[in-house]
Design a protein around this nucleic acid. Structure first.
Length: 861
RNA sequence: GCGAAAGUGGCGGAAUUGGUAGACGCACCAGAUUUAGGUUCUGGCGCCGACAGGCGUGUGGGUUCGAGUCCCUCCUUUCGCACCA
């Protein structure tokens, strides 16, 4: 053996060995239990960051662990290669997004390979390749045929200076990120996927996903948001025509408390009334300004304007004034709400602000009620009061009777409402999957025939920030109508990149299949047994993937119901955020590595530190901590770590740092410890090898040996338990404990050898290179990948005596050792005799003695 | 604002799921080895206290023989909010 641990040499050798033996090629083997382990594929942003290292090390550890447990494993990798950052980079550097993307893929693949992940690279895919995205187009057309894709208008952020649509991320404090111009809303035609048709199933099937974290299921359920209520109508007459204003409510029992109605600015009634009311028109315009981001919407000041127009209360016929409210969502329900200030907090605030009547109609369970200030109990369910014939009815009865009365008048009915909205997939951007439609003046929107797929995206465009460059490419836009053959225009919108990521895990099963989206191999590999990725994907990506799977199932393409059997949501890796804001409102982010804390004099002699940029010494603003990301420029490239310490140290450190599901604030303190452990392991193995070769006959004392075996096997038992829980930080510490136990011994024998082989196998999923190397060098076998996973020996855990904790009144007062077969009476007697216990009992009468078998005695006085 | 989670030494974290709080590491301190630096090894290390002992898991309350763990309150941080991926 070499006497120094040289990570780079042994890691290169191990990787060459795996490469030469095609160790990670996954082949379908019917009859053998399969394990499809998948980490969310990366966006090729340039370099890996620590979040990637964490994600892929978790996946690799699970992959290798299951392989050693006898599963036929598949761990593929690919690239989520379409998206906005490539266009931004293109603008900044005048490089086509395609070139930038492929360069990034090449670099990041090298990084992944150097980390030694057990990936089957033969299945690699990139979503920007026509081979992949043609099937996005193909499935889009199948969904169009089934009516699962349809066209309607949608609202987008519009930058009036650049004359372009902005992503939500490009809107900062209501202004365009490049121009600083106030963003406007704009209605444009878009294509939608009808995910709401699957709302019921997407909700119900959550109960059949025991392998998913509860919090993710809760978030999805809330997102889908099924609510039971009543859709009711307020009749009115306008322009000589009878019409109805529809609204949905979950509180039909409060209908007698309605004192106003509010509609969204985009509501047709608002549009109509604004026509001859300039003040209203101005207000409607004001509401339509601003961004489309719902969080902004929810936090902005609630404003309204009366229209002077009245509708009739559906039950009493009372005149109710219609208001336009900036807080009424035009995407949810009918874009109108009935205002019940008495029992809805938002309506209450609105009524107080504008002096509208507040009419309590629920007894709120006899708690005090005052129209001066809102109290949380005003929203409670209770019996109806001030409600005429409904007085005295409770919530359920009131809703039933009121719904029946409304139905009798043709002015309402019970309805299930979903918060979930259909999925708008049109993007006015270049770097994405072209939507396969052709616009013909005579034939309308005509699907591109299957035999003309894929609609290939030209790869040499360089966006300039002013609209979609595809629209300026005559060679792309101009085409013939497939129906009538006349001149026509190709659709230039591309698809949301969530489309790409909604089914890539299916494609891995048959990535080389040229003539179909899927083949029979998907039935072998799918569903994914273990999916691993960031918690930030808890809703959108995971919901879209579930939806897409169900669509493919209904098209007969796959047989699975759900794509991911088990889900591990990795906690985010956070880092500090630093930025500067220019006068135009534009924000530039600086990497924490380029920022130093400069001490400066604070007020009253307290010294504070100011973050300053290394290059110019000028201060930057601190933006707290947040997820490592390209957009916040706060990623940490693992390359330096790998180059200094090697892949195994980087992997071990990352796993040891915290449990996988927990948020992790980045710090490299502790890397030394990981590195030291691997060096200690190496030098121990070197010592072990020498002793074994020299035929050293030193005997190990019987008690010492028993203690060592007890330690190693109890730690192994715990570690196996932790592996099943995916708690790799304690698996890593288990390995350290084992090494500590072995290193205390001065000699080697067969039992020690077995313990060392356990340690190497336990470490193999986390630090595969050093485990591979030492396994061979110590002649444990040819390839540790083929070794059997270690199980603890129950015989080693048997002890003659058990240690009990002694408490008086719940406070720790001592310990005692008792023979393992002692009965309860004896344990109680021995505990009461214990001098420490006696001291604290101090002659007081003993009320009770609690004995927890094998663990603890508590004397209560 | 709404939805979801998290909060334990100077730091990362552990705690057999209601039973010895701080495993295993990092940092630090002392000692040994070393020409020195680094490496390596040994020991110490929650806070207060001379000791006895007391206090201690974000805040305040509750349940229990016993609470980091269960219930309620508040605070802080993180994730998501439909065009970042």
């Amino acid at each position: 053996m070499q006497n120094k641990y040289n990570a780079h040499v042994i890691e290169r050798e191990a990787q060459q060995y795996w490469d030469g033996h095609r160790s990670f090629r996954a082949v379908e083997a019917p009859g053998k239990p399969k394990y499809y382990c998948l980490s969310m594929f990366p966006y090729p942003s340039g370099k890996l960051h620590m979040g990637h290292v964490r994600n892929y090390t978790i996946g690799d550890a699970l992959t290798r662990y299951h392989r050693m447990r006898g599963y036929n494993v598949l761990q593929p990798m690919g690239w989520d290669a379409f998206g906005l950052p490539a266009e931004n980079a293109a603008m900044a550097n005048n490089v086509p997004p395609a070139k930038w993307t492929y360069d990034n893929i090449a670099y990041m693949k090298k990084q992944l390979v150097s980390l030694g992940f057990a990936i089957d690279w033969e299945r690699e895919l990139a979503t920007c390749q026509p081979d992949y995205y043609r099937w996005n187009q193909w499935l889009f057309l199948r969904m169009l045929e089934k009516g699962l894709v349809y066209k309607k208008t949608g609202t987008v952020n519009w930058d009036p200076v650049d004359q372009t649509v902005l992503a939500n991320e490009q809107v900062i404090d209501g202004r365009g990120w490049r121009t600083g111009a106030l963003v406007e809303k704009r209605e444009i035609p878009m294509y939608y996927m009808a995910i709401t048709r699957y709302a019921d199933e997407l909700l119900a099937a959550l109960d059949r996903l025991p392998g998913w974290p509860e919090r993710v299921k809760t978030m999805q359920a809330n997102w889908i948001g099924r609510s039971y209520g009543v859709r009711l109508a307020f009749p009115y007459t306008l322009d000589g025509k009878h019409d109805k204003l529809w609204a949905f409510t979950t509180r039909a029992d409060t209908i007698m408390g309605v004192t106003f109605c509010a509609v969204a600015a985009e509501h047709p009634l608002a549009t109509r009334l604004a026509r001859d009311n300039p003040k209203l028109a101005a207000f409607v315009d004001e509401c339509k300004r601003g961004s489309v981001i719902e969080a902004d919407f929810a936090t902005m000041e609630k404003k309204g304007l009366p229209t002077g127009f009245f509708v009739a209360h559906p039950l009493t016929g009372e005149k109710i004034e219609v208001w336009v409210g900036n807080y009424v969502l035009w995407g949810y329900g009918d874009g109108a709400v009935m205002g019940v200030p008495g029992h809805d907090e938002r309506d209450f605030a609105f009524a107080r602000k504008y002096g509208l009547a507040i009419k309590p109609v629920i007894d709120v369970n006899a708690k005090p009620y005052s129209t001066d200030a809102w109290q949380p109990w005003y929203a409670e369910h209770g019996k109806c009061v001030n409600s005429g014939k409904y007085d005295g009815l409770d919530y359920d009865a009131a809703v039933d009777v009121i719904a029946a009365d409304l139905a009798a008048k043709g002015l309402g009915e019970k309805q299930v409402m979903w918060r979930l909205r259909d999925w708008g997939i049109s993007r006015q951007r270049y770097w994405g999957t072209p939507i396969p439609l052709i616009h013909c003046t005579d034939c309308g929107d005509v699907p591109v025939p299957d035999d003309q797929l894929p609609v290939v995206l030209p790869e040499d465009c360089v966006p300039d920030g002013s609209g979609n460059p595809l629209a300026k490419r005559a060679d792309f836009v101009n085409c013939k109508c497939p129906k009538c053959g006349k001149k026509a225009m190709r659709e230039t919108d591309t698809m949301d990149t969530f489309v790409d990521s909604s089914w890539y895990y299916i494609r891995y099963a048959c990535a080389d299949q040229k003539s179909a989206m899927v083949d029979e191999r998907v039935n072998y590999w799918l569903p994914v047994d273990q999916y691993i990725g960031g918690i930030e994907h808890a809703i959108l990506h995971l919901l879209y993937s579930r939806f897409w799977t169900k669509v493919m199932r209904d098209l007969g393409l796959v047989t699975i119901e759900e794509p991911f059997t088990n889900l591990l949501t990795q906690g985010m890796v956070l880092n500090e955020i630093f930025f500067r804001k220019s006068d135009g409102g534009r924000i530039v982010y600086y990497n924490p590595a380029d920022v130093v804390m400069t001490p400066g004099a604070g007020s009253l002699g307290i010294t504070g530190a100011t973050p300053t940029l290394k290059i110019d010494g000028q201060p930057v603003e601190a933006g707290g901590t947040g997820t490592m990301s390209k957009s916040k420029n706060n990623g940490v490239d693992p390359q330096a770590l790998i180059e200094e310490y090697g892949a195994d140290t980087a992997r071990f450190f990352m796993m040891f740092a915290s449990p996988p599901e927990q948020t992790l604030e980045w710090s490299d303190s502790g890397v030394e410890g990981a590195s030291r452990f691997l060096r200690r392991l190496w030098s121990y193995c070197e010592k072990f090898d020498k002793r074994k070769r020299s035929g050293d006959r030193t005997q190990i004392g019987l008690n010492v040996k028993k203690a060592t075996l007890l330690e190693v096997h109890s730690v192994l038992k715990q570690a196996n338990h932790d592996f099943e829980k995916h708690q790799f930080n304690t698996v890593a510490s288990a390995a350290m404990k084992m090494l500590n136990a072995l290193d205390r011994l001065e000699a080697v024998d067969k039992d020690v050898e077995e313990c060392l082989s356990i340690l190497l196998r336990l470490l193999c999923p986390i630090t595969p290179h050093i485990s591979h190397h030492l396994w061979q060098k110590l002649s444990f076998g040819k390839d540790i990948l083929e070794a059997k996973w270690p199980e603890h020996d129950p015989a080693a855990l048997i002890e003659d005596e058990i240690e009990f904790v002694l408490q008086v009144n719940g406070k720790l007062r001592g310990n005692m050792r008792v023979a393992k077969d002692a009965d309860r009476a004896l344990i109680e007697k021995l505990a009461l005799q214990n001098p420490n216990v006696q001291k604290h009992v101090n002659g007081q009468p003993v009320k009770k003695v609690v004995v927890v078998p094998g663990r603890l005695v508590n004397v209560v006085v």
